[in-house]
Amino acid sequence: MTEISRRTALKHAAGITGAAALGTALLPAAPAAADDRFGKAVEEARRTQRKIRTGEPSANGWEMEKAADSGGAVWTRPVSGTDFGVATRIEGPGTVLVHVIRRFHYEISALEEGDVTGWTHPDAVEAGLAESNLASGTAVSIRPGHYPRGARGGFFPGELTVVRDILAELEGVVRWGGDERTPHEALFFLGVPPGDPRLNKAVGKLERWAYEPEAGAGTHVDVFSPQRRKEARALRERQRSV
Rank of each mutant, 00 (worst) to 15 (best):
T54V: 09
G55P: 05
E56M: 13
P57C: 06
S58G: 15
S58R: 02
A59H: 00
A59Y: 00
N60M: 09
G61S: 12
G61A: 09
W62E: 05
E63I: 14
E63R: 13
E63L: 12
E65C: 11
E65V: 12
K66T: 10
K66R: 14
A67E: 15
A67P: 09
A68V: 13
A68P: 05
A68I: 08
D69F: 07
S70P: 01
G71R: 01
A73G: 12
A73F: 05
V74N: 01
W75Y: 08
W75R: 05
W75S: 05
T76V: 07
P78F: 09
P78L: 07
V79Y: 02
T82G: 04
T82K: 05
T82W: 02
T82D: 03
F84S: 06
F84C: 06
V86Y: 01
V86L: 05
T88F: 08
T88D: 08
R89W: 06
I90L: 15
I90D: 14
E91R: 15
T95Q: 02
T95N: 01
T95Y: 00
V96P: 01
V96H: 02
L97T: 04
L97Q: 05
V98P: 00
I101W: 02
I101E: 00
R102N: 11
F104P: 06
F104N: 12
Y106C: 15
Y106A: 14
I108H: 07
S109G: 15
A110D: 12
A110S: 14
A110M: 14
A110V: 15
L111T: 01
L111Q: 00
E112Y: 09
E113T: 11
E113C: 08
G114K: 10
T117I: 11
W119L: 01
W119C: 01
W119V: 00
T120F: 03
H121M: 05
H121Q: 07
P122Y: 07
P122Q: 03
P122E: 05
D123P: 00
A124G: 04
A124T: 06
V125I: 14
E126D: 08
E126S: 11
A127Q: 11
G128S: 09
G128D: 09
L129E: 13
A130G: 11
A130C: 09
S132K: 07
